[in-house]
């Protein structure tokens, strides 16, 4: 299977770099998979789980929003925050969600909609985490 180059960068570090078979990205307008030879695309990312497939092995990384860019030179994901599944502090994540729920009251109008949307994304990550925790 053809591979392509993939960089995952967050403001604080280069979280992943290397040749991969496939990357599944949680886009704002729906999840999409990138294989070698994908057409050039710039897409916004919603908070979700990004899956990297290399030689049949899956690696899951949680990204909290950002931007994906596919060009001839490969795929670059600019993630706001990138945490690998193993490193994630689940208790703290749950705490963040609780804080966000608390914070909802302070927003209004468009901001409230955005906050709710973001909270939903976080909750769906949490759900996926607990459902995939078994393997």
């Amino acid at each position: 299977m053809a591979t392509f180059h993939f960089d995952l960068v967050s403001p604080e570090k280069l979280a992943f770099t290397g040749e991969v078979d496939q990357v599944d990205i949680p886009g704002v307008e729906g999840d999409f998979g990138v294989l070698a030879g994908h057409a050039p695309v710039v897409a916004a990312i919603r908070p979700g789980i990004l899956t990297i497939t290399t030689a049949g092995r899956h690696e899951k990384i949680i990204v909290l929003g950002g931007l994906a860019e596919v060009s001839e030179s490969g795929l670059t994901v600019l993630a706001d925050v990138a945490t690998s599944l193993d490193e994630l502090d689940r208790a703290q994540f749950a705490e963040t969600i609780a804080e966000m729920e608390e914070g909802l009251k302070e927003h209004e109008g468009d901001e409230l909609d955005q906050a709710i949307e973001r909270l939903d994304h976080f909750k769906s990550i949490q759900q996926q985490l607990s459902s995939t925790a078994m393997h």
Binding site: V28, E29, P40, V41, V42, A44, E69, S71, E72
Partner: peptide, 13 residues
């Protein structure tokens, strides 16, 4: 010179 597709629209990004 690559012409990208944008998702969502350019101005939104």
């Amino acid at each position: 010179t690559t012409s990208y597709e944008y998702e969502p629209e350019e101005d939104e990004i």
